[in-house]
């Protein structure tokens, strides 16, 4: 058994791992099989993470997070969690491979998933013009007309990135002002290939085998019109990834995992949450990282408060030659055995 399992490999998960590993908790971090590194893996230049005045590519930043966590003894597993049992003193986490890992504490840092528009043809045309990842798919739209839906930083970044390839990039936004940071807004405003379509929402996506056009609806007048394009990039926000924890960890009204005050403590003792999965508001790499620190410190505090009998097997299985507790010893399986 372990002292700590961390679920998630974005800034929150890896920062929790760095702190926990330096506290010699030898955490196991479940990184996911195909989404390891989290959301920053699909971004290009990260310009607002302190310590990188020249900017750094998202995947490179996540590689550094991982190396720093591993340097202090974090074990990283590239698999997906399929089931959790977090209610008891000993937490059980089942992986896609069928492997079950046990630990005394769990940090949940599962982040969030792209939100869909919820239109009938969205799924059918996904991969055929509908995309959530400009860095993955932008290059296929050379000299084409595309649109980005959304008004936040991600929408501005995607649109600006897409101008490298596309002839024309529309930004479709429901309101008449943007949520994005000023610098990202300005970059989009200054780009001659970008045109804003204000107070507009996508009412339908059309195309037989690939996207051919979208129906735009004016959010004020309700008037509809067709816009011809071949690519539609959706950047309308994210939803916290909480499905694994339904019925175990309490949620907030916003759908994030509920934590106590400024801590990372969930309703379950020994279960802590960090990053986008608890944050409906800020959702930045740096705030997620900070929240990972809080979770590691809270978990460390919790583990220190546990009775020695519960801790011994967890420690005994990983620390060679550690002195047994007086009057007891640890057998080969790491089980606490009372001496006669």
């Amino acid at each position: 058994m372990r002292q700590m399992i961390i679920i998630g490999s974005g800034p929150a998960g890896y920062t929790a791992a760095i702190y926990a590993a330096r506290a010699e908790l030898e955490p196991l971090l479940i990184a996911s099989s195909v989404e390891a590194g989290g959301e920053l893996m699909n971004t290009t230049e990260v310009e607002n993470f302190p310590g990188f005045p020249e900017g750094i590519m998202g995947p490179d930043l996540m590689d550094k997070f991982r190396l720093q966590a591993e340097r202090f003894g974090t074990e990283v597993v590239y698999d997906d969690v399929t089931e959790v049992d977090l209610t008891g003193d000993v937490k059980r986490v089942t992986l896609g491979s069928g492997e079950v890992h046990e630990a005394l504490s769990v940090v949940v840092a599962t982040g969030s998933a792209y939100r869909k528009l919820g239109l009938p043809d969205e799924d059918r045309l996904s991969g055929y013009g509908v995309s959530w990842c400009a860095t993955c798919d932008g290059a296929f739209f050379r000299k084409r007309v595309v649109a980005v839906v959304g008004g936040g930083d991600s929408a501005m970044e995607e649109a600006t990135f897409l101008t490298r390839f596309a002839d024309k990039v529309y930004i479709i936004h429901r309101r008449d002002s943007l949520r994005a940071s000023k610098i990202m807004q300005q970059r989009a405003f200054d780009n001659p290939k970008i045109e804003f379509l204000w107070n507009s929402e996508v009412a339908a996506i059309s195309g037989e085998t690939a996207v051919e056009s979208v129906t735009l609806r004016d959010t004020i007048t309700g008037e509809e019109r067709e816009l011809e394009l071949t690519g539609l990039f959706i950047a309308v926000g994210n939803d916290p990834r909480v499905h694994l924890f339904h019925g175990q960890i309490d949620l907030t009204l916003e759908g994030t995992l509920a934590v106590e005050g400024r801590s990372s403590r969930t309703n379950l003792p020994g279960v802590f949450a960090a990053g986008d999965v608890i944050d409906p508001t800020y959702r930045q790499a740096i705030t997620a990282a900070a929240s990972g620190t809080v979770a590691a410190l809270d978990a460390e505090h919790y583990l220190a408060s546990l009775p020695e009998a519960l801790l011994a097997p967890a420690k005994g299985s990983v620390e060679e030659g550690s002195a047994p507790v007086a009057g007891s010893t640890v057998d080969a399986d790491g089980e606490l055995v009372n001496l006669p």
């Binding site: 989404e35 590194g37 993955c136």
Partner: peptide, 10 residues
């Protein structure tokens, strides 16, 4: 493609 992170992952 080289530059596609999900491609490297899969």
């Amino acid at each position: 493609a080289e530059w596609c992170a999900p491609c490297r992952a899969v």
